[in-house]
Amino acid sequence: MKKKWYDVILQIGKPYIYLGMFIVVVVPFLAKCEMQTYETDISKTMYEKIESIYKYNQKNADSEMAILFAFDYGPSTTPENDPMVYSVLRHIFLREIPLLVWAPYVPYLDIAETRLNRIAKEYKAIYGKDYVFLGLAYPVDAYMISTGSDFRPLFNTDYYGNDVYSIPLLSKYYSYDNLGLVVSITSTSMPLFWLQYANALFDQEISVGTTAVSAADFYPFVSSGQFQGMLAGLKGAAEYEQMVERLENKIINKDIKVYLSDLYRDIDTSQINKKYFEPKFGAEEIQVAINRRSQARRGMSSQFGAHIYVIILILFGNLGYYFKNKESNKTTVTKAR
């Protein structure tokens, strides 16, 4: 029997579907397309929240608020979470808000350490004075609860083994009392723990950057104001990237390439502890830093291709299914006669 057109469509082999997906993702990549995206209210809320902490700190120099940044994601979701981390950290360092960082599981630690120091280096942030990496907060429940009073006895030392009581930043910031915001960038249900322990018990404000998988789950909490804004998936990251880029252009006001290559040129780098980062920028590193500034937006162009591709696939699948059904109904009716 001759195959009908819909049979051909419905029987396309998996490898061909996969090959199509590969092509639509890779081509925009190789063509170096970069996509501007519209900015949603929930991303703007998060941006404005961090701006409000900056404004508060400007007015109250002696009682500044800090941000606790939780690296709640592991290696498997770095493509979605990394661009969020980069742009939010850049925002925090640009606004010189004191920053505390922790990670709840062991595999997240190395991810957190490299990303934190990478961005700190771009803004000449000093470890212990501008930011601290506390290290592992496992089990996270215990750490969230103890931050209600003082988290230092639980940590004993920071990630690098420095005594927590000897770090200048931690003499001021060790509980929710002077944390303006908790930012959780995540691929897990960690924000729900933050809700239960930090928000419900201590009225701590929380902002979330999540993989798109969990975003729908978190919408009720954004809408109720329990989360102060949310970055949802790669698009959320791309939106934040745009907002921070505008801010960075305003504050730094010169070409990023020039800014980075001049950053450590005329200062005495012997005072900077090289344990955290090497205080100089090579040409290759500058290029990577510039690429990083548009990582999410470059991804969005491939994302566009993939979404259109799948919508077309679904459409063809349904058309084939519809005509096949129609045909088989017709045959049954004829046979019945």
Binding site: V25, L30, P79, E80, A212, G233, L234, G299, S302, Q303
Partner: peptide
């Protein structure tokens, strides 16, 4: 409507992961 929205988001997330790997190889 809710699950449809959640599916759209989930699809987006899965594609992002693949894009990330391609970013590693091709750039």
């Amino acid at each position: 409507l809710g699950f449809g929205g959640a599916f759209g988001y989930t699809f987006m997330a899965r594609i992002s992961l693949f894009i990330g790997r391609m970013n590693f190889i091709f750039s």
